[in-house]
């Protein structure tokens, strides 16, 4: 299980993590499927999570979600975590998880690692908080 602060963009479905859903955007159609962007977080960081198909209605703010074999990558120019075709998301609880809203891993500019071009490293913080789901309180 990886902490959200340690996830790095990659073209691999290998992220196992757990987080709490803080906020949900409205549904949009991508191809033939509904998608919905959500703000999720654990005690180390937040990130944008893309819900797909029936996932959009299955989760509500306050739900604790376990992600298996997820992928953190660019989707139409925005950096999102999602289950993807090979991953799975499950509701495992509610409410009882602490979280932080900053840093937001989707609001970081990543560049290829000069010493290993297969990897990304953080270049700069674009915004400390989500610009799509600005802090509510």
């Amino acid at each position: 299980m990886v902490s959200l602060k340690d996830i790095v963009p990659a073209a691999q479905n290998n992220i196992d993590t757990k987080f709490i859903l803080l906020d949900k955007g409205s549904k949009t159609i991508q191809g033939h499927n509904e998608t919905c962007l959500a703000l999720v977080a654990d005690e180390t960081a937040a990130v944008h999570f893309q819900l797909w198909g029936d996932e959009c209605d299955a989760f509500e703010p306050g739900d604790i979600i376990q992600l298996a074999n997820g992928i953190f990558s660019y989707n139409r120019n925005s950096l999102v975590l999602r289950a993807g075709k090979r991953g799975k998301v499950h509701k495992v609880g509610e409410f009882t998880m602490v979280f932080v809203e900053t840093p937001n891993m989707s609001e970081i500019r990543w560049i290829p690692d000069p010493s290993n071009s297969n990897k990304y490293i953080q270049e700069a913080v674009i915004s400390p908080h989500s610009r799509i789901f600005p802090p509510k309180y």
Binding site: L22, P61, G62, E94, F95, T96, V98, K136, Y137
Partner: peptide
């Protein structure tokens, strides 16, 4: 027991 003062608003709304 776990939520810090200042971070409670979302939890309160959920509750």
């Amino acid at each position: 027991t776990y939520v810090k003062l200042g971070s409670q608003k979302r939890y309160q709304a959920w509750f």
